[in-house]
């Protein structure tokens, strides 16, 4: 029973959500809408369990004074403070002047964009490494990347025209790479991924994949 009930549930919801696309009938659309709504509600409610998990995982570490326990304590304190004051403000997290909004503007936003900005450094180091790998594949990847990068800045266009006497227009080459080989590659990935996704979906609905069914 522990396995059968979930398997039946998966099958029913899966089939309804698949058939729904082809049938506009209310007898199909109403259950579909309900399933979708319920599914999303359940998923968002899990943030409560998630927050509990943070406490369950970290509190014992703090109590036992394990490695980095002070940082964990700061983290848990920051979480409780932010959540506590946020709930105290009763959902006014978007209002200017509220504590939650202050936290968002002065902590979360700068931290987020700084993490994002790290990418500029990492992308350089990744490119640098690709440069040193001497295989046909790496060369192709890097050549395409360099052409595209150069083709998107004015100096690249100027240089290519000057050096080749107008025979080569870099932006044109970039759009050719984009429209012909890049498109072919992307299409194949999308078609392949779609096939993989469909067959994974079918395996899940049929109950062949059941590693998520703990007993």
């Amino acid at each position: 029973m522990k396995k059968t009930i979930p398997l039946i549930v998966t099958f029913i919801t899966g089939v309804i959500m698949t058939v729904e696309y082809f049938s506009p009938h209310p007898l199909v659309q109403h259950p579909k809408a309900a399933i979708e709504k319920w599914g999303i509600s359940v998923m968002s409610a899990m943030i409560v369990l998630g927050t509990l998990n943070i406490l369950i995982v970290n509190l014992p570490r703090i109590v036992r004074k394990e490695r980095d326990w002070m940082y964990k304590a700061i983290m848990v304190a920051a979480m409780i403070a932010t959540a506590g004051l946020g709930f105290y403000e009763q959902g006014k997290f978007d209002d200017k002047g509220s504590f939650s909004n202050w936290m968002f503007t002065h902590l979360l936003v700068p931290l987020q964009s700084t993490m994002f900005a790290l990418l500029a450094f990492y992308i350089t180091s990744a490119a640098f490494r690709a440069f040193r790998a001497r295989s046909v594949e790496a060369t192709l990847l890097l050549a395409a990347a360099i052409i595209v990068m150069l083709g998107r800045v004015p100096i690249g266009e100027l240089l290519s025209a000057k050096l080749t006497g107008g025979a080569l227009n870099l932006p044109d080459l970039v759009s050719w790479i984009n429209d012909v080989p890049n498109l072919a590659g992307k299409r194949a990935i999308m078609v392949g991924a779609a096939l993989g996704a469909i067959s994974t979906g079918i395996r899940v609905i049929l109950g062949m994949e059941r590693s998520y069914l703990a007993g």
Partner: peptide
């Protein structure tokens, strides 16, 4: 750790409301 703590608390409030 500040980032983790604050964002976990913040999103709990936002998702709840």
């Amino acid at each position: 750790h500040i980032y983790l703590g604050v964002s976990a608390g913040y999103w709990l409030v936002v998702v709840f409301h």
